[in-house]
Amino acid sequence: MSVLNSPALRRLRSRKAAVAGVAVASAAAVGLTLVPTDADAGTTAEVAAAAPVSWKVDPAQAAKVQESIATQQSSFEAQVKAQLEKKKAEAEAAKKKAEAEKKAKAAAEKRAEEKAAADRKARAAKPAKVTYPNNLDGWIREALSIMKKHDIPGSYEGIHRNIMRESSGNPLAINNWDINARNGVPSKGLLQVIKPTFDAYHVAGTKHDQYDPVANIVAACNYAADRYGSMDNVDSAY
């Protein structure tokens, strides 16, 4: 391949042509009006053949070109400034958004922690529900807790002693042979209470059932407290 036709040389020529074109366009834009100073010049041929001619720049055109360049420069600077201010504003907005999200997250975490602390405090303040085994020991202890709330006297020993005498600890015990039975109101339950007595001394919050062990104990102790001062004072049929 000839050096004169190499790609590198062709690119160089193209670049020079482009530069030349820009130069020509710039010269046209600048509007430098070149006018011959010889007012007596004749034909174009005569001017071309004449001695070197003096040329001058039209001041008005030059001023216009300078003004145009200044205007373009000012517009370009304004655009650059506007873009910079836009980017700055976007960065500030992003920063504020991030800060707001951070604050919101911190506030949410704080509220969650406060709620958890309040829940823990409420659980600590609220006594745990006591459960009792479904046997004689559990029935007596549950009855004593209810009796304490209603200021009904009586002890575990006194209640247990009377239960063993009356029913041997059977909550379904029933007496079908004594005077109460003959009168149609047999004694029932752990402490062998007849229905009229159970109804009269039943304590609210317990089941209204003579055979319910806890209700039976509480009603009987309430009756014994009224008549004997306490179930602890009872040692025989009452």
Rank of each mutant, 00 (worst) to 15 (best):
M1W: 04
S2G: 13
V3R: 11
L4P: 01
L9A: 07
L12K: 11
R13E: 06
A20F: 09
V22W: 09
A25T: 12
V30K: 05
T33C: 10
P36D: 15
A45V: 05
E46T: 05
W55H: 06
K56F: 06
Q61Y: 02
Q66T: 12
S68C: 06
E77W: 01
V80H: 00
K81M: 03
Q83M: 10
L84F: 00
A89E: 14
E92L: 13
K95P: 04
K96H: 02
E101R: 03
K102M: 04
K102Y: 07
A104C: 13
A107E: 14
A108E: 15
E109P: 09
R111N: 12
E114P: 06
K115T: 11
R123F: 02
P127A: 12
T131Y: 09
T131W: 00
N134V: 06
N135C: 00
L136T: 03
D137E: 14
M147K: 09
E157F: 06
G158F: 03
M164W: 11
S168Q: 04
G169C: 03
P171R: 11
I174L: 10
W177D: 10
D178Q: 03
D178S: 06
I179N: 09
R182N: 08
V185S: 11
V193P: 00
V203P: 01
G205Y: 05
D209A: 12
Q210W: 00
V214W: 01
I217G: 01
I217L: 04
A225K: 14
D232N: 14
D235F: 11
S236P: 00
S236Q: 02
